[in-house]
Design a binder for these strands. Structure first.
Lengths: 145, 145
DNA sequence: GGTAAGCCTGTACCTGGGTACCGGATGCAA
DNA sequence: TTGCATCCGGTACCCAGGTACAGGCTTACC
């Protein structure tokens, strides 16, 4: 009886049903109970757990990291490890913000100078030839989102 | 004679050879001439073009967007101008920075409050229940990337 | 008991930006 | 002419984070 079906959990947490099974495969959700016919029956707090997962993702943690954190949290290891990860994440975010800020100022120059072409810009003092910003190695992913 | 081979272009531009062919498929590089035996022979300014592409990527443009921009620039159409796109890109970047800043401050709270678990944090005034930031709909990708 | 909605597993596909591998053909210098 | 480096096209694979579909079973409601 008490427990939610896949569709209910998905709807309440605002995720796709497939995502629930995906998270189960990835180890973020433990395998729920089953009905006699084999349908999953989730404990009601699964919805809250999903919200935690989504929040952690928004904090910049990958699913692997979230899985580890949840696991560490469940086993109650004296893991001040979350703190350290948060600290690391903060520097990562700082780097991203710095990159974006550099990119932003170049874009501003492009706008101010009224550049009209990437390759053949005719504007005076065109900043485009100097777009060597963001070449730093700390972010292999470039500035992409 | 005049013209560069695949490997030379790749090396000078600092990209993988496969990437050249990939860009050709994607329409970022137009099909180069060929030797009698069918090997590609690139005009020397291809290297500069690749640098432009990489710079635009660092500015946050996707390859599709770069392709369009190059095309628009080549055809000198007054449409789809670089300037407007740059303006749009700037607001996009501003949103990302705002999200990252919000995430950063929450992480700072996590660190300051000495949270020890994502789901069962025992610290006083735990900020984790308030991790509803970044739920705005303008960035489906969250703050990740 | 009928029927429609919901769920099951398994597998394939998507995005974006590439990268790797294969067997065979070419290019170039000695 | 030999021999090695390079290049060819085609295809498959990588990452993360999902999403979709097919064919069949279960559940819920009337």
């Amino acid at each position: 009886m008490s427990g939610l079906r896949t569709g209910e959990v998905a709807e309440r947490a605002g995720v796709n049903i497939q995502t629930l099974r995906y998270y189960e495969r990835r180890g973020l959700l433990s395998e729920p109970g089953r009905s006699l016919g084999g349908h999953r029956i989730y404990p009601p707090d699964t919805v809250a757990l999903l919200q935690v997962i989504k929040a952690a993702q928004r904090l910049g943690f990958s699913l692997d990291e979230v899985a580890e954190l949840l696991d560490a949290g469940r086993r109650r290891h004296p893991t001040a490890d979350l703190r350290q990860r948060a600290i690391d994440k903060i520097s990562e975010i700082d780097r991203k913000i710095a990159d974006l800020t550099a990119i932003r100022s170049t874009l501003t120059e492009v706008v101010d100078a009224r550049c009209d072409s990437l390759t053949n810009c005719t504007c005076a003092d065109c900043p485009l030839p100097y777009l060597t910003i963001g070449t730093s190695s700390h972010d292999q992913n470039g500035g992409r989102g």
